[in-house]
């Protein structure tokens, strides 16, 4: 079944939004995400550019500053809600994992 846009986030979306919980220049996210994840997640420049456009359109982030073509962004309350929603979804998944595997280990 096709999922609604931003109903769940991909790993790349999640970390981009996480970076933008503090004001951040768009281009710098490319360095911040691998640093944040120990190199596990890498965001391509084209993907980042397009996702920032989509987040702006969906009013999940807003532009805070523009120095030439260097633009900074920050999460909006809507973006924060989406990010928190994803966090809770991941927590629930992790909780389910723990509960089921612990039941198997200690009957």
């Amino acid at each position: 079944m096709p999922r609604l846009k931003f109903q769940t986030l991909t790993e790349q979306m999640y970390y981009i939004l996480l970076c933008l919980s503090r004001e951040c220049c768009g281009i710098d996210i490319m360095d911040q995400v691998p640093a944040m994840t120990g190199g596990r997640v890498r965001v391509g420049s084209g993907t980042l550019y397009n996702l920032l456009e989509q987040f702006l359109q969906a009013e999940m982030i807003r532009e805070t500053r523009a120095e030439g073509r260097r633009r900074s962004y920050i999460l909006t309350p809507k973006g924060r809600r989406v990010l928190e929603g994803e966090y809770h979804r991941l927590c629930t998944q992790a909780e389910d994992y723990r509960r089921i595997l612990e039941e198997e280990v200690s009957p």
Partner: peptide, 14 residues
Amino acid sequence: PVPIQTDPQIELAQ
């Protein structure tokens, strides 16, 4: 190098 597109959905849309 990190590919320009790392999300296939976005590339597909483009």
